[in-house]
Each structure stands twice: as structure tokens, then as C-alpha cells.
Design a protein around this nucleic acid. Sequence first.
DNA 1: AATGATTTGCAATATTGTTGCAATATTTTT
DNA 2: AAAAATATTGCAACAATATTGCAAATCATT
Lengths: 137, 137
Amino acid sequence: MQKEAVLKKAGLSVTESRKTILELFFASEGALAHADIEKHSSINIDRVTVYRTLQTFVESGIIHQIPTTDNTILYALCKDSCEAGHHQDEHVHFICVSCNKTNCLDDVMVPMVKLPKGFLPIQTAMIVKGTCIDCRN
Amino acid sequence: MQKEAVLKKAGLSVTESRKTILELFFASEGALAHADIEKHSSINIDRVTVYRTLQTFVESGIIHQIPTTDNTILYALCKDSCEAGHHQDEHVHFICVSCNKTNCLDDVMVPMVKLPKGFLPIQTAMIVKGTCIDCRN
DNA sequence: AATGATTTGCAATATTGTTGCAATATTTTT
DNA sequence: AAAAATATTGCAACAATATTGCAAATCATT
Ligand SMILES: [Mn+2]
Ligand SMILES: [Mn+2]
Ligand SMILES: [Zn+2]
Ligand SMILES: [Zn+2]
């Protein structure tokens, strides 16, 4: 889908900042952190705008978050099937310890897991750390 | 195991800060973030010392990290079987969206998952968000 | 108790995140 | 196509979080 189409489908205004950030996600192999976006965007986008755009994109179901253990949040494009408020991204995420890229393994679904009595699951994330296919040489 | 024993087993000096922080983990039901420790420790521990202690504890296999999507890192006690450099904590973590506590589900192991050719896993984390047993009333 | 090694707290600095508000850009209406 | 209404952006100021070097204090060893 085109940048503008994605924004319009989500009911968002089409602005330069949003198109530029979306462009970055389209072009990127792996997931992006706030800092990546601030550094690599073609035009200059204010730090605050980046924060707000990422938040808007998450809420609109355009991108999803990937938890990490380094005080950053990673973001990656959602499938078209994701919608505002209701994400459908239960695939596994792979963080390469060598190149440090994070991949969405779109074809690997997060397996169900049986929880103790009383725990009611809503959403499950699975993050695998290891060596990615590009780094195994 | 006693506080001092834990530290000695890890080959660490036994200091007031370390005992106090360890105490907090023993007393806490759920996982702790840096901020929790800074706020709730009985004696006053400098912010920098808290950072350094957490790092040391992770490296020594005393605590393990839990990834989140809110720019914090959560920490919880490891099993006795964990050792420096080589953690053995592949259990599921449960974050309650109501009370916001994070539990180690020590008895729920992270299931294996088949990765695409070429991806070599080292460690897997699984975080379930939902409603915990205490909040289902 | 004295020595040496490690840890701690402070200060200074850097990085990251939040908020209000006026200026600008976008969408909708006329 | 212009005007009006709405939404977004950037700036500034601030708050919160994280990092580093170094001297003082604490801890382990003798
Ligand atoms: Mn993903
Ligand atoms: Mn745990
Ligand atoms: Zn790699
Ligand atoms: Zn709860």
C-alpha cells in the first residue's frame, strides 16, 4: 500500500512528517527506535513530532511496539489487518546480538501457553535473541 | 538462601546497598523497576549506585531482566540455578494491565518455537499482558 | 589494625521524554 | 478557489532518566 493510502485508511491527515516517517519504515529492513528515526529521516523532524507521530501510528494500528531490555521501544510496521486499538501482530520478534537488527518473523506465530488458574491473557509477546541469517557467515 | 549467602555465592562484596536492594527483591511480590528501588529502599541509596548494583546483579545471575514497551526495564530474582553470564530463566512473565504488577510465572516454561532457516536462537522471552489473579474480582 | 581492592556518593554532563502554546499546514466548507 | 474550521508542527521550557570521572568511604585480606 502507498504511504498516503495507509494514512488515509487510518483516518489521519497526510503530512510531510508522517509521510517521511512512514517512508523510513517502508525502507527499513528491521524495526526502528525513536533515535533511528530522528537520525535518519530525510527532512528535519522535531523530536517532539517524532514522539507524537509514533504514538499516533501505534494507536492507529499502523505500527506495533516491540519490548526490549535496553530502555528503548522498537517499532515495526503492522500488517494491513491491524486496526486502531486492535492489533493483530502476534508474531515472533528476533533480535540479532551480532548486527543488532530486529526482525519481525511474520510467519512465526506466538504459540499459546497454558497459564495458571485465574490469569487472563490479552496479548502475548515473544522475543528471541540470537544470530540472524545475515550474520551466520 | 540468605542475602549474604547470595552475594557471597556470586563472589560479590557484601555491602549495605546490595543487601538493601536484595532485601527489596525478597520482599517484593512482583518485578521491580529502577524507580521502585530508588523510592522504596529503607536506606538512601544514590541513583548511580542503584544503576550499578542492578547491572552487577544481572551479570552475576542474581536477577534477570524483563523487557517492556514503556522505556523501563523490570528486574526479578533468578532461580538459584542461574549463574553469571548464563541465565536459566526461561519462564513466562505476566504483566497485569489492572494492578500493573509483573509476575514471574516460574512454572510456565517458554515454549520452543520453530524459526526460519538460518536463525539461531540463544534466549527467548515471553511476556503476557492481561489480568492477574488478584484483579479478577 | 594495617593494607589493598572494591564500592559508593557527589558533581557535572548527556540523553531522553513531556507539556503548553503560537505558528503553520491540512481538511472541510462555502 | 478562497475562507473557515480543524489538526499538526516546532519551539521553548522543563522534567526525568542515564552516564562518567574521581575522591572518600567501605569492605576483604593479611
Ligand atoms: Mn513485528
Ligand atoms: Mn522472571
Ligand atoms: Zn544479524
Ligand atoms: Zn493485577
